[in-house]
Amino acid sequence: MAKLTVLITLFLLATATMLQAQAPIAKKKILLIGSFHFQNPGLDVAQVNTFNVMTEKSQKELEQIANKIQKFGPDKIFVEWSAAKQNTLDKFYNLNSDSLLRSSADEIVQVALRSAKKLHHTKLYGIDNRNSEFPYDSLVKGMKDAGQDALLEANEQNMKNYEIESNRKRKTYTLTKLLLDLNGKDYVDMDLQWYLNIANRAGKPDNGVGAYLVSEWYKRNLYMYALVQKLTESKDTSVMVLLGASHAAMFREFIRHDPQFELVELKSIL
């Protein structure tokens, strides 16, 4: 009887160990927010009108958004700030918050810093990596040299449509609606399709200018995503990532294939 009891005990322990090993690991939640640059210096290829986030109406919206982020409760907030300049970001974060919120329209201040202060975080995490190129002028030249007139026309029309639609929305949408739109399926599909359907095709067969631009864009975003993976600790249950919308579109693909993370849509918390 004693031997049988020991065998049963060992069997139960082995079964429990096996079940524990097979138990799914709880995924960490990522609230991904793709944004336009509130304080746009005009460096983007597409040139669109500014949207004043410093109005009383937009400031109220930003407070509401930050309150919803606070309720979500991310353990860390990652932003589009050079990772190599984290010390500068730390000093910036420790400046007078009220003064920054009144003087700086930057989305890192208005969304990330505002939210982080409500959460009593001690810092923001910079993840941007600028060791890559975006040779747009060379891309267009490659199309011209290859006689890709239809592709050139498609690219110009794509850019024109984007600028027209963006300017229309910035005249009629609230700030909240603009952000929800940038995180919606239509925008994400449009953004990713430009890289694969237009940019990647550019150039003669022996000229990989298009593929080079696309690969450099992937490279930049992969380096950024790697920092989110590395800086998210085992104790963290959720994080937030605030990036330009085109970066966020790429991040969605990474998260979708990363078994350790679960995407949280902006619309689900607002």
Rank of each mutant, 00 (worst) to 15 (best):
Leu124Tyr: 01
Val48Asn: 10
Gln22Lys: 12
Trp81Cys: 01
Ala248Phe: 05
Leu13His: 06
Lys160Trp: 07
Val48His: 00
Phe261Ser: 02
Met159Gln: 14
Ile65Phe: 05
Val239Glu: 01
Ile269Cys: 03
Phe72Asn: 00
Gly34Ser: 03
Ser166Trp: 02
Leu175Tyr: 00
Ile30Asn: 09
Leu152Gln: 12
Lys185Met: 09
Lys267Gly: 13
His257Trp: 05
Asn96Ala: 01
Glu233Met: 05
Asp149Pro: 09
Tyr125His: 08
Lys235Glu: 15
Phe78Gly: 05
Phe11Asn: 09
Gly73Trp: 00
Asn161Pro: 06
Ala146Trp: 04
Leu43Arg: 15
Thr174Ser: 08
Ile127Tyr: 07
Leu62Asp: 03
His37Thr: 09
Leu139Ile: 03
Phe261Leu: 01
Ala23Thr: 14
Leu4Phe: 14
Tyr212Thr: 06
Leu152Val: 03
Lys169Gly: 02
Phe92Asn: 05
Glu80His: 05
Leu213Lys: 01
Lys28Ile: 06
Ser268Phe: 02
Ala105Gln: 06
Met159Pro: 07
Asn40Gly: 13
Asn67Glu: 14
Glu165Ser: 11
Lys230Glu: 11
Pro135Arg: 11
Val111Tyr: 05
Ser115Met: 03
Lys185Ile: 15
Ile108Ala: 09
Ala202Lys: 02
Leu62Met: 08
Ile33Glu: 15
Leu227Ser: 09
Lys57Gln: 10
Asp258Met: 06
Ala26Asp: 08
Leu62Trp: 05
Val79Tyr: 08
Pro74His: 04
Lys118Leu: 15
Tyr136Thr: 07
Lys57Ser: 07
His37Met: 10
Gln157Trp: 07
Ile255Ser: 04
Ala14Gln: 09
Asp128Lys: 07
Gly147His: 10
Ala84Val: 02
Ile8Gln: 14
Leu222Met: 12
Pro74Gly: 00
Ser132Val: 06
Gln157Thr: 15
Asp186Met: 06
Asp128Ser: 12
Asn200Ala: 15
Leu4His: 12
Leu32Lys: 11
Ile269Thr: 12
Trp194Glu: 14
Leu10Pro: 08
Tyr225Pro: 06
Asp149His: 13
Leu178Asp: 06
Asn197Gln: 13
Gln229Trp: 04
Lys169Tyr: 09
Met224Pro: 07
Ala21Lys: 13
Val239Gly: 01
Phe72Ile: 04
Leu152Met: 10
Gly203Asn: 00
Ile255Gln: 01
Arg256Thr: 11
Arg201Thr: 04
Asp98Gly: 06
Pro135His: 10
Val45Asn: 11
Thr122Arg: 14
Lys141Tyr: 10
Asn87Val: 09
Lys91Ala: 14
Leu100His: 09
Lys118Asp: 10
Asp191Ile: 11
Leu101Gln: 00
Val48Ser: 13
Ser132Met: 06
Gln64Gly: 09
Lys3Leu: 15
Lys3Ser: 13
Asn49Phe: 11
Ile164Val: 13
Leu12Ile: 14
Lys28Arg: 12
Gln47Leu: 15
Asn49Ser: 14
Glu262Asn: 01
Tyr212Ser: 05
Ile269Ser: 02
Lys230Val: 10
Leu10Gly: 07
Phe72His: 02
